[in-house]
């Protein structure tokens, strides 16, 4: 059964770059959300196994998504993908339940390494 992946970023280019960096041999179905609210709608619909989450977004940012997910018993793998590369942003995101933090711009090797490291992809 394929893994359900949600790519959350307000930038269509960033979503495209992330999708391109996902392993071609990973059996997945990919949905996109352009803000935190859309991400939460998809999550609550119960169809998200892995969420790639940007931090800096209008409407509902990545930290607010992590906060809400924690309040609702986080039940998916969240990998933060952010241009905000401050150590405190990384610590804060990991402290709020994200399993990994990937700096933008993403690259295929970096994404594959993270997926393998956390057992999301064998």
């Amino acid at each position: 059964m394929s893994v359900s992946v949600l790519v959350v970023d307000d930038s269509p280019i960033a979503r495209k770059m992330l999708r391109k960096a996902l392993p071609a041999d990973w059996d997945i179905t990919v949905q996109e959300a352009c803000n935190g609210q859309e991400a939460m709608l998809a999550y609550r619909a119960g169809k998200v196994d892995v969420m790639f989450l940007d931090l800096t977004m209008p409407t509902m940012d990545g930290f607010q998504v992590l906060e809400t997910l924690q309040a609702e018993d986080l039940n998916c793998f969240v990998i933060v993908v952010s241009a905000d590369v401050q150590p405190l942003a990384r610590e804060r995101a990991l402290g709020m339940g994200a399993i990994a933090f990937v700096s933008k711009p993403v690259n295929a090797e970096g994404i594959r390494t993270v997926l393998r490291e956390y057992g999301v992809m064998v």
């Binding site: 280019i13 241009a83 401050q86 700096s103």
Partner: peptide
């Protein structure tokens, strides 16, 4: 869209430097 995302990444690097 590309400029906005590229500016976002540049801003992140500047934010890290000043932080």
């Amino acid at each position: 869209d590309a400029l906005q995302e590229i500016a976002n990444i540049g801003m992140g690097q500047a934010g890290d430097s000043i932080a």
